[in-house]
Every structure is written in C-alpha cells, then in structure tokens.
Amino acid sequence: MKRWLPQPLTSGCLWLVWLLLAQSLTPGHLLLGGLLALVLPLFTVRFWPDRPRVRRPLLLLPYLAVLLWDITLANLVAARLILGPARRLRPAFIRLPLDLRSELAIVLLTHTISLTPGTVAAHLSPDQRVLLIHALDVDDEAALIARIKQRYEQPLKEIFAC
C-alpha cells in the first residue's frame, strides 16, 4: 500500500484537478485521471524529504472558513489603507517567533499571513524559528503578534500536532 500509493492525499487532489480540468466525468477521463494520480506521486515522491503528517484533517475546514472570512475583511481594511493618505501609514518589520515545527504548517501560516490584514511574510530565518513580517500599518506590535499566534498558529498547531 505504502509502496504503490505513497501519498494518498496528493493522489486524490491530482485526480480531482484532472477531472476539473477536463470538465467531464466520462469513464475515459476518470481512468486517465486515476492513472496520472497513481503514477505522478510515484515519480515525485523522492522530492519530499519528510512526509507531512496531518493529525486532525477535519479541523482544516473551520480554519479555512475563518481564513476566507478574514481575507474578505482584510481586503476592505487594505483598500481603506491604500486609498487613504499614504503619509499616515506606519509600516514596520516585525519578527514573529515560530512555535510550529512542521514545514507544511509553516508554509500554511506564511500563506495565511500574506493573505490577511495588512501583513506580508517577507523572510523565514534559515533555522525556521523566526518569520520576518512586513505590516502596512502597525499600532501595537505585541498585539499583532498575539493575534496571529492565537488566531492562526494555535489551530495549525492542533491540526499538525507539532
């Protein structure tokens, strides 16, 4: 099982992507997509040094819901900041100490930070302990860090159990 289907999640995603791309559910496409979904992970498994472990995948759904809501809200905030007078912005670089250890979890956190209110992830330290963030308008640095930690890092920690 492990040998012929090293990454079941990747295979499932590939199959779904193929079917979406082909926009059809005919047996031919189901078969071809399934074949690709089986073969591609076999060829690429060597590029994944540590297999990411998702401990509680169902918790991803509420996380995504929160994320989607925050993205929408973030854009209204960002729009106001962008269209307002630029001189009143207080941009700053902030260091966020990371508690996450799994690489995939860090990637997801970086994505989240870049898509949500006024922050873009700019640099990850080589030891993967500190993330450098650029914020567009900072009022209280400690509050921003606490917010990111509590709202995004905590759930990710639970999902990946790391």
Partner: peptide
C-alpha cells in the same frame, strides 16, 4: 514593501 500589500491581497 508597502507596494507588496496591494497586489497580494486586493
């Protein structure tokens, strides 16, 4: 770095 915010989010 401020310019980055526009394209990535909006």
């Amino acid at each position: 770095f401020m310019r980055l915010h526009g394209p990535t989010k909006a």
